[in-house]
Amino acid sequence: VVGLFGGYTTVSSLCLQTLNLALDGERRLAVFNIVASSALCLLSVAFGFLAAVWMAG
C-alpha cells in the first residue's frame, strides 16, 4: 500500500509541475519535463534491473 501511494504522489507531482509550466506559457519546458522525467525513470529501472541480475549471479 505504501508503494502504491508513494507512486501516486510522485505522478501527481509530475503532472502538477507540467500543468503549471503549460499554464505559465512554458509549453516547451512542459514537454521537456515529461520527456526527461520518463527517460530518467526508464534509465533508472534499467539500471536497477541490470544491477539485480548482476548481483544474482
Rank of each mutant, 00 (worst) to 15 (best):
F32I: 13
F47H: 06
V11I: 15
L42E: 06
S37P: 00
C41F: 15
V11N: 06
Q17A: 11
S44T: 13
Q17S: 12
A51G: 03
L16T: 14
S44R: 04
R27I: 14
W54E: 07
G48D: 10
T18L: 07
A22S: 15
F47M: 11
E26V: 02
G48R: 02
V2A: 07
G3E: 15
G57S: 13
L42C: 11
R28E: 14
I34N: 01
V53T: 01
Y8C: 10
S12Y: 11
S37G: 01
G48W: 03
V53I: 03
L16W: 11
V11G: 05
A30F: 03
A30S: 15
L29I: 01
A52H: 03
L21P: 05
V1F: 10
G48K: 02
A46C: 05
V31M: 12
V2S: 06
F47I: 11
T10C: 09
S37K: 03
T18E: 07
L43H: 04
G6K: 08
L50V: 12
G57I: 06
M55Q: 08
L29W: 02
Q17P: 02
A22C: 12
R28H: 10
C15F: 14
A36C: 08
A51T: 12
L14Q: 07
A22Q: 08
D24T: 05
D24V: 01
M55P: 00
A46S: 02
V31K: 09
L21V: 05
T9W: 14
A39K: 02
G6H: 06
A36P: 00
L23E: 14
D24N: 14
L43S: 06
L16D: 14
F47P: 01
R27Q: 07
G6T: 11
L16Q: 14
L14D: 03
E26N: 12
M55E: 13
L23D: 13
G3A: 07
A51D: 11
L19G: 00
M55H: 05
R28C: 09
V45C: 00
Y8K: 12
I34E: 00
V53W: 07
N20Y: 10
A46V: 00
A22E: 09
L42R: 04
S13W: 04
L29S: 11
L42Y: 11
G57A: 12
L50P: 03
G6A: 13
V31H: 05
L50W: 10
L40H: 04
V11H: 05
L4F: 15
V2E: 06
A39V: 04
C41L: 15
C15D: 05
S37L: 02
T10K: 04
A56I: 03
L43G: 15
S44D: 07
S44P: 00
L4M: 10
R27F: 13
V35A: 15
V11Y: 09
L14F: 10
L19A: 09
